[in-house]
Nucleic acid binder design. Structure first.
Lengths: 195, 195
DNA sequence: ACGTTAGAGACACCCAGTGCCACCCGGCAA
DNA sequence: TTGCCGGGTGGCACTGGGTGTCTCTAACGT
């Protein structure tokens, strides 16, 4: 199983490189298997779908987000705690940033991966909605918890897009900028045509 | 082509009913074709994918949303104009509500359709972001236009979920409730544990 | 009556994903 | 050494979504 984890990482990198080079749709499972030196069947044992090869250990990130939210203090505004948790969970070492860029460029750029991402985001939303529900005493399926969950995730995704496209900003800074707009009801909309 | 549109509608209804009854994944394209009395190949000429059969004339809705946004007056707050446009474009006749419920229950409930929806939503987001960009003089790909687009869409989707789950509320009322929370920076978060 | 053309079916094909079985190899008891 | 066992692997066949292509037919104008 040590070998197994190693294989998984090797397959993942091969897939990432092929997807980046040729586009997600153009790369077949056979291509990845061949590049990684395994059989097609083994590829699908490492990753349930082609798309999963791009997401790495995402469920671990969701678990970490959940723990971070559970550990927040109650005197902190709800949105601030969510923002801090998002920043914390996306605090990568400088050495890991290139691979993060590669991953996110695929996820945000390839239609098939955008589609798949919705399923992953649903897990994130459940966690955030649960946090808001706990803090406000509402049901997790009520309007406010759900709305906060989806719109904070929208903020995070948008911050990622801007970070990816710009290249000069910090992910943490972009996340804070997006959350600030959201928490204040889009004050940027009130300074019209400032250009 | 009169026949064509007629066929399309018949196929769509057959697909909708089969999906509702047996689940999206369980129904094959052959099943739908047989139920509609056409060949499998013809089904895929009516709808590019199985998922598209659920969405009907969605691009027409997006076009209508775009026209509604273009027609808004500039002295109206940006968020208010977007909310009004969303309400307007989702103003169905009472007779059409059952089929809308059926459609949305599938889209919001079936994982495969949730995934597909992301691609459709991207078109909506482009339109809304363009509107915000025009109103604020910013680039459509800047943080604020994108953020407003994604979070208003999140609000609309959440409103749909609540409307669908509740059954006693009006879609317009739920949309307004969600947009109000968003526009005011979630005032509901400040009345903690009111239960 | 004649070609023309769009819609439909038939068929072959590609690829994602799954179930099943056979194999190989390291460990372990007799 | 022999035999058994269990996990990782490959091979293979199969289902199902989606596409390209050919053919047929039926409506159309002249």
């Amino acid at each position: 199983m040590d070998v197994r984890a190693d294989t998984r990482a090797r397959v993942e990198q091969a897939a990432l490189d092929l997807f980046t080079l040729n586009g997600f749709e153009q790369v077949t499972a056979d291509d990845i298997a061949e590049a990684a030196g395994i059989s097609r069947r083994t590829f699908f044992r490492c990753f349930a779908t082609k798309a999963d090869a791009v997401w790495g250990e995402f469920s671990a990130h969701v678990d970490r987000l959940e723990r971070l939210l559970a550990a927040t203090r109650d005197d902190q505004p709800v949105l601030a705690s969510i923002c801090a948790a998002y920043v914390e969970v996306n605090d990568y070492a400088a050495a890991d940033l290139p691979i993060l860029r590669q991953r996110m460029a695929l996820i945000l750029g390839e239609p098939a991966l955008q589609a798949h991402s919705q399923v992953r985001y649903a897990d994130v939303d459940r966690v955030v909605a649960g946090h808001v529900a706990r803090r406000t005493g509402q049901s997790p399926v009520a309007l406010l918890p759900r709305l906060v969950a989806t719109s904070t995730r929208a903020a995070a995704t948008t911050a990622f897009e801007v970070w990816l496209a710009d290249g000069t900003t910090t992910l943490a800074a972009d996340l804070h900028a997006a959350f600030d707009q959201l928490a204040l009801g889009f004050p940027g909309l009130r300074t019209l045509s400032s250009r």
